[in-house]
Design a binder for these strands. Structure first.
Length: 203
DNA sequence: CATATGATGGACT
DNA sequence: GTCCATCATATGG
């Protein structure tokens, strides 16, 4: 039996706040007759029309921003970049513009054998230590767009983690050519599944 | 149809 | 650290 997912209101706040609060939570993927699970250890916040790094920035002539504005908090969207699927969750609107959280890395908890098969690697620290790696390990692809992680019957949900003291670090976002001035990447200190550890700023 | 572009990953020095 | 294969999109001919 799988635990109840986090409620939709958890995702209704500002992306940076949700990105912080998601650290230590558990990403659960119902995969065929198995369950894959991982602790979220690295996230990034993204905004809409005014965020130059966002796929929904006003300079991009995509219909993503239109779709995004209509999506409920907790809705999954999966985007292809550099041949990798990236997992995102819709969060609250700021001044009418959408925001979202990118899940960049998780720590494998359950179903490691299946993840190793999906990724074709044996080293556990290489399974999910990056945004493209975790989607591959969890078998997540674009057809999951539109699911909601706060709905019990969804194939991808997020549940609360165990109570533990976590130390959160932040930095600039990774791999973007034009970032916003604030730190919008958040990750757990001293966790080997975090993809990169440069520009560390401890809280 | 051709080509450019990334919220990347992996191989290599 | 550097180099490049990757592939869904977007855009131009």
């Amino acid at each position: 039996m799988i635990e109840k997912p986090l409620p939709r209101c958890f995702f209704k706040n500002d992306a940076a706040r949700v990105a912080n609060e998601l650290l230590g939570k558990i990403l659960v993927r119902k995969y065929k007759n198995s369950v894959l699970a991982g602790k979220i250890v690295e996230t990034e916040a993204y905004y809409g029309a005014d965020d130059p790094a966002s796929r929904a920035h006003k300079s991009k002539k995509t219909n993503l921003s239109k779709w995004w504005r209509c999506a409920l908090p907790g809705t999954v969207f999966v985007y292809m970049v550099h041949g990798n699927w990236l997992l995102n969750i819709v969060t609250g609107k700021i001044n009418g513009e959408p925001s979202g959280v990118l899940i960049r890395a998780v720590e494998p908890l359950k179903g490691m054998e299946i993840m190793m098969k999906n990724r074709n690697v044996k080293e556990i620290e290489k399974l999910t230590s990056g945004p493209g790696k975790l989607t591959s390990a969890f078998g997540i692809a674009q057809y999951h767009t539109g699911l909601n992680v706060s709905e019990q019957n969804s194939d991808i949900i997020v549940i609360k983690g165990k109570n533990e003291n976590i130390k959160i670090c932040s930095s600039h976002r990774i791999g973007v050519s034009e970032d916003l001035p604030q730190n919008l990447r958040f990750y757990l200190a001293n966790n080997k599944f975090v993809s990169k550890k440069n520009d560390t700023v401890k809280h």
